[in-house]
């Protein structure tokens, strides 16, 4: 009976699993990349999330704000699944063939250099700090939005953001200035 009900629910929702998720794949991948620091781990994280979501399609089709829900799922998956790995970003991946073709502004050595420095700085942050720094300072979400999306109190997010920024700023201070960047 449950299967019959879920069958009709799925039918009524209209779109297939792939159709529902395809529009969100790029933003989810970017978010995963910001969390993991390299393309391979980002793909693995995204893959793990999708496999999990496939088994919970009822929730997928009934989520009120799908984008926000997916962002939260990805973050939770990142915290759960990658806590064990404790892997630092693989900076060699910056030079892999795929990334070399995909990085925006990849024609600028300076951009590539600072991209690498930001990645290295992000690896110093806790997962909570990394999440809020990426989504707030890079993706442009407001703290109020993030509080709603991640179901984390606003004050806690502010605290993570403040500490994360300070770590990054301290790291950036240690780098050469623009006019003497070692490339």
């Amino acid at each position: 009976m449950t299967q019959v009900v879920s069958f009709f629910k799925r039918q009524s929702s209209g779109d297939s699993f792939e159709e529902v998720l395809a529009p969100h794949m790029n933003s989810l991948f970017k978010q995963a990349y910001q969390y993991t620091g390299n393309t391979q781990d980002a793909e693995d994280l995204l893959q793990d999330l999708l496999v999990e979501l496939y088994q919970k399609q009822d929730k997928l089709h009934t989520a009120k704000s799908l984008r926000a829900w997916l962002m939260r799922c990805l973050y939770n998956r990142f915290v759960d699944g990658y806590r064990k790995k404790k892997s630092a970003p693989n900076f060699d991946s910056l030079h892999d063939e795929y990334l070399a073709n995909k990085l925006p502004n990849d024609d600028s050595p300076e951009t590539s250099y600072w991209h690498k420095q930001v990645l290295a700085g992000l690896s110093l942050l806790s997962r909570e700090q990394r999440m809020v720094v990426c989504l707030h300072d890079i993706e442009g979400h407001t703290l109020a939005e993030l509080s709603d999306i991640m179901k984390i109190p606003l004050g806690t997010l502010k605290s993570h953001l403040f500490r994360g920024r300070r770590i990054l700023q301290d790291r950036f201070k240690l780098q050469p200035f623009d006019d003497c960047v070692r490339l």
Binding site: Q31, L103, W114, H115, V118, D137, R165, L168, Q169
Partner: peptide, 12 residues
């Protein structure tokens, strides 16, 4: 800081 962060763009 914001200038540095703006250089960070995840690949598509």
């Amino acid at each position: 800081y914001f200038v540095r962060m703006a250089t960070f763009n995840a690949p598509n």
